[in-house]
Simulated assay, not measured.
Amino acid sequence: MELFNLNGKTALVTGASGGLGESFARALSQAGARVVLAARRIEKLEALATEIKSQGGEALAVSMDVTDPANVESAFATVKEKFGGPADIIVNNSGISRDNWYTKITEEEWRAVMDTNVDGVWRVAKAASNALIEAGKPGSIINIASITALRPQYFISAYAASKAAVDHMTRVMALEGARYGIRVNAIAPGYYKTNINDEFLDSEAGDKMRKRIPMKRFGEHGELAGALLLLASDAGSYMTGSTIVVDGGHTVNTL
């Protein structure tokens, strides 16, 4: 179990103000890491930081808009100032969706998804990697992709395309980062209730989808912790360029 110990590590989680990001932050804290909670909604981050501290953890809330390059750089500067060095672990979790037929989605909606889900992942990974390289330290970047990068689904052309980009970008980053000791991997979750999809999952169409999943249920947030801690810790020290699918068998179901 010592392989999964994150004592002395600093982990930054984007999109930590709710949903999977909040769950990731809690799991990393419980494994011993000090956590940097990053998102635009600072008030929600402060509440989570207070909760983590009350449980004996160490947490810092920082405002970060992944669509703003200067803001991303400022957040990493804050981490360096606070902890005397870069974050060792980065969870690139920020993401949005704009659901519609591809013939109906607007230019503005498409660009908003790409700016957050693709450009934002690149901005954060770039800032994190440069900080690690400057400090001469190894690190682990964990990009949050999706099973929609692997199999098609109606109405989410922008989201699916963005996650497919994240999936492949992860491999290119892994190739380039290896010389610096920076591992880059991805997690592709199946369907878990978040503020992006809860309305759909609670609908009749969502229930039909649930029945097609071999395990006949949607995932619980905590069920991603195993993959997360594997990639974040020394337990995954020889893993880079991998995408771990955690979906209850959804993507291996028969056609």
Rank of each mutant, 00 (worst) to 15 (best):
V172M: 10
G56H: 12
E134H: 04
A160E: 08
L175Y: 15
P152R: 13
Y159D: 01
Y102Q: 14
I144T: 09
I133V: 04
N130Q: 10
A70D: 15
A125Y: 07
A125K: 03
Y159L: 00
E107H: 14
A186E: 01
K82L: 03
E176S: 04
A127Q: 09
A135T: 05
E109Q: 15
N117A: 06
K163I: 07
Q55P: 02
G139Q: 04
I141G: 01
N185T: 00
R111T: 10
R151F: 09
L132S: 04
Y159G: 03
A149M: 14
I133G: 01
V166Q: 13
T67K: 15
K82A: 13
T103Y: 12
A160F: 05
D88A: 10
P86N: 02
T67Q: 06
A75M: 07
I156S: 09
V166W: 11
L150T: 11
A61R: 02
L60K: 12
A70S: 11
S97W: 00
A165Y: 05
R151D: 03
P189C: 07
V79A: 06
D68H: 08
M64E: 11
I156V: 02
H168A: 10
I141R: 04
I105P: 03
E107T: 06
E176L: 08
G177W: 01
V113I: 05
V172R: 00
I144M: 14
W122T: 07
N185A: 00
G85P: 12
I144G: 00
I96E: 10
M169F: 12
A178P: 04
M173V: 03
G120F: 03
A165H: 09
I147Q: 14
I187L: 15
P138L: 06
G95F: 02
G56Q: 08
P69Y: 02
A112V: 00
V124I: 04
A158N: 00
A77H: 09
A164L: 10
S162N: 12
S157V: 10
K80I: 06
S146F: 13
E108M: 01
A70H: 10
A87G: 08
V113Y: 03
R183S: 00
I142Y: 09
Y102S: 14
A127N: 05
A125D: 11
I156M: 12
R123I: 03
A161C: 09
L132G: 08
R179A: 07
A77E: 14
W122G: 01
S146L: 07
A87T: 08
G95E: 12
I89Y: 05
A128Q: 11
K137M: 14
A160L: 13
S157Y: 07
W122P: 01
K163W: 10
N93A: 13
G84L: 06
N71P: 10
T170S: 02
E58N: 03
Y154S: 12
N130C: 02
S97M: 13
S97I: 09
D167H: 15
L175Q: 04
A160Q: 08
A186M: 01
V184N: 01
A149R: 08
V62C: 09
G181I: 06
R98Q: 15
S54V: 05
K82C: 05
I96R: 07
N185G: 04
S157N: 03
S162V: 05
I147M: 12
N143P: 09
